[in-house]
Design a binder for these strands. Structure first.
Lengths: 269, 269
DNA sequence: GGGTATTTGTCCGTATGTATT
DNA sequence: AAATACATACGGACAAATACC
């Protein structure tokens, strides 16, 4: 048992939460009530509550009180099933029976032209300074913020005839299909790198993350390749880490998810 | 610009860190110095520092001072390359040139017999109450804690002749190869589910995570299947989220990593 | 809409404990 | 042993957000 008083208070409250004595969404006693209950100062109570907040067990709402965190049904994204933007193999978590397929919707992209540098140049295997197109989209599920996605393509694709890439509108069917249709560039595979990091300001704002720094974001960097082995695109997608999970199938895996092994489909994440 | 004073102080310090004015490992002014510099009370300075801690920008060391967090070179684990326990496709991050292959070492397993219930029963497709073997191992890279792994197998494997499963020692070559050799049970594929959550006490202790709740853990649940489509094992592995990344290859991906697409190898994670 | 009570957020000052050098 | 630096705990005051009448 840790000795600081605020930790003991926190452990006691945690036990009440984890035992179910306090259920999801329930309000805790107010700081003043806890102050009397534990015979501690209000600041010490607040330290205990901060400790619970840091572990995602409770949240405070100014003017209302302190509440046990509600349960989250994470979205599950299948990484080896590459669908067009705005559609996808996304499910709610839960038992097999309650699982529901979800259909994402994407905003029109914000287009920017960058010069490849550092990491980006290495990942797309371009000379430093080469022009690249950046297509940035907000993606929603049930009209709730779900992910932020930026795809980067060599600018040369435009000169070769893929003019839609620099148009600020969604490409129905996805960019990957478009590139194959127009340029004959075929995506034959990709590599995903999955990591977790604190959100930047844009992400915190879009996802509505609390500003206490507790919720991090998944960052998935997908480098997709052409038949020649040349990178075709880099797509960076971020998701709030507290309400998303990812699934990968390797080899032969029995049905249930619509993901025959070893198959390659089209576009993002 | 946020108005609370502690946030303004925090933003100012953050800017100094992110601009490089304060480098990795550098010591910040002491609380008393900051108190004079910003003309605030020590408690307010401490609130600012706590905000920086919550974002992983600094750490405090009692008796020493406050320091900018050192840089971490994450380990990169290739999820579609299933190696034997204690070997594996694990790399340091960084540019292609500085990347180094790492070889994990696993402790002897702690063996437990459980009854399948709830999630576990569903995932292994066993009746509730069926006996399962739990093999729990600590895994190290360069003798530093790297991951905790628990593999669960149906108890029936033992009756059918796989007695090594309930021996508290590592099985050279991996359990998957052992099961194929002894029982003819062949692993043909698997499904990984990747999520992030706060560490439990065991994990926090083993990984040496700070008790401020900032560092979460990756949890990777791998259900591996036999040719018949029946689950063969459930392996749950956890990694500190601040120093691990994961890579997945789908379809055809050019060399560099030793992972020809569509190949299936042996055992964990 | 306005006013009031409730509840958490910010800020201050002080004292003492504990870890490190 | 002494000095330094962060950690814990107390108390008080006022601000800001919310709910309710």
């Amino acid at each position: 048992m840790p000795d600081p008083m605020y930790r003991q208070i926190a452990e006691d409250l945690r036990q009440k939460i984890e035992s179910g004595e306090l259920g999801h969404g329930d309000q805790l006693p107010t700081e003043l009530e806890l102050r009397e209950e534990y015979e501690a100062s209000r600041n010490t109570i607040r330290d205990a509550v901060k400790w619970l907040i840091a572990r995602g067990l409770v949240e405070t709402r100014p003017g209302q009180g302190t509440f046990v965190m509600g349960e989250i049904e994470p979205y599950v994204t299948v990484l080896d099933f590459d669908t067009g933007f705005g559609q996808g193999a996304v499910y709610t978590s839960g038992t097999q029976a309650t699982r529901k397929r979800k259909v994402p919707r994407a905003s029109d992209p914000r287009i920017e032209i960058h010069q490849a540098a550092g990491n980006l140049a290495e990942e797309l295997r371009l000379e430093e300074g080469t022009a690249v197109i950046s297509r940035n989209q907000q993606r929603f599920i049930d009209d709730k913020p779900w992910s932020l996605q930026t795809s980067l393509y060599p600018m040369s694709f435009v000169a070769r005839g893929a003019g839609e890439l620099i148009q600020a509108k969604d490409i129905p069917g996805g960019v990957v299909r478009y590139l194959e249709d127009v340029l004959g560039i075929k995506q034959v595979g990709w590599r995903d790198k999955i990591s977790v990091r604190p959100p930047d300001q844009t992400e915190a704002l879009f996802f509505g993350l609390p500003d206490n720094g507790r919720v991090e974001v998944f960052e998935i960097r997908r480098i997709a390749f052409q038949d020649s082995g040349t990178p075709l695109r880099l797509t960076v997608t971020t998701f709030p880490a507290d309400r998303n999970e990812f699934v990968v199938h390797v080899g032969r895996v029995p049905g249930e998810m619509p993901t025959p092994a070893g198959r390659v489909d089209e576009s993002g994440p």
